[in-house]
Design a binder for these strands. Sequence first.
DNA 1: CCAAAAGTGTTCATTCTACACCCATGG
DNA 2: CCATGGGTGTAGAATGAACACTTTTGG
Lengths: 251, 251
Amino acid sequence: MAEIKEKEPVLEQKSQFAVPYYAISYDKFFQFGLSVDCVVFGYHEKRLKVLLIKRGAEPYLGSWALPGDLVYPNENIEVAAKRILKDLTGISELFMEQTKVYGKVDRHPAGRVITTAYYSLIDIAKHDPHASAWAEGVYWVDLEEVPGLAFDHDEILEDALQTLRQRVRHQPVGFELLPQKFALADLQALYEALLNEVYDKANFRKRILAMNLLINLKESQKDVPHRPARLYSFDKKRYDELIAKGFSFEL
Amino acid sequence: MAEIKEKEPVLEQKSQFAVPYYAISYDKFFQFGLSVDCVVFGYHEKRLKVLLIKRGAEPYLGSWALPGDLVYPNENIEVAAKRILKDLTGISELFMEQTKVYGKVDRHPAGRVITTAYYSLIDIAKHDPHASAWAEGVYWVDLEEVPGLAFDHDEILEDALQTLRQRVRHQPVGFELLPQKFALADLQALYEALLNEVYDKANFRKRILAMNLLINLKESQKDVPHRPARLYSFDKKRYDELIAKGFSFEL
DNA sequence: CCAAAAGTGTTCATTCTACACCCATGG
DNA sequence: CCATGGGTGTAGAATGAACACTTTTGG
């Protein structure tokens, strides 16, 4: 968006604003397609999963891919991302964050399509993948068993996973993957799965409880063949307060 | 990029791949412009600066803005970003990382332009901003004195600064802002400027040296009116080795 | 010899780690 | 009363913060 000393690059056309912006034709510049791809992570029975689709159309017919779609010219990117997730899962409110843009010239056979990747987190148990709202051809795939994906989706998934791991250490996004009420052992198992580590039970709970971000629900598990665990929920209000005061979450 | 159960969104056109991708017209989808905006941070005399331009063309003629330009349809985004930086500063090799995409429908008066933001780090002393290679109308502005910017550039700058602060704590990107040879006090001053904190001298150097990422050059400052400081340089090779072994930088 | 900044060592408090132990429930 | 996981206490190590002190240079 700047005036730049024009050294002619690939094309022989001048930078948009080297002359008044209404005086030249932009047709050459307005040829991009824009899409969104969603990396939806789910957590179930101590395994991290990702939502994949089996493509029902060309290109890459029959291949596995991340769910995504083109963005409409009068649609905000985030709205498109929410639309896609809604259509896939029936859920309209879920945690979502942009990761990166992918724009290699040849990444899409149909033309110059750049794509914005989003990742989301979902508690699988809360949203039955076989409920009627779910789209056909959508599957939860264990992260360890992800096959090769269409387009540059392998790279997108890898980057999203990196981002997730990064975030989970410094922001309490992990809670998005758990039910409202959970036991500390569940939380520990989640972090162990996400970060591929093992923590000492006593020390883990001390660290977590010291943050004062959990609400002790004074309620316990039922029908378990051992001492029932105390249930907790995440105190988002308190988290926001702390953040406002400059607190920084660390694990 | 997926087949999605089609619920009609804003427009009345179907998702690209709901039918074979060569059978429908894409014209409606390929109307986006793509630009790059660069947030170039520099460091000089204990102050953090950012490169801004004074716009010489409409829209926002005369306003301050981040340097940027449209991407050519056959040009990779990263190439465009490098081209812009080269034209601005004459430097072709410098640290650069994508931050986010901005794509609000109305963010640009000339049409639907989405922009990818990159941030870079530069040692100002190394690159005289008045050298002939520099573009006209480009200025280093102290971060504390940045005026309101054109488009959504205020937001872009703010996000880039957040990213920089985040990165600088967890990866040794700070070294990009310093000369090859630097004293520990320089490094400390840099971190203090970046993170707006004050560190204890003794403890700071203990922490830094304990990482074993600095090469003691066995060389000292000259002509200073006090005890000359030992000079160091960053050991990138060792850093890469440590990273490969799963080491994580923290400050 | 003084000012100024480089560079070091020590103490004390805090946090982290490992591990042992007790508790509540169902079968 | 046993198996199973929930839940707690403690000792010792490691880390971090504060601060006083020594060193080397130019003027």
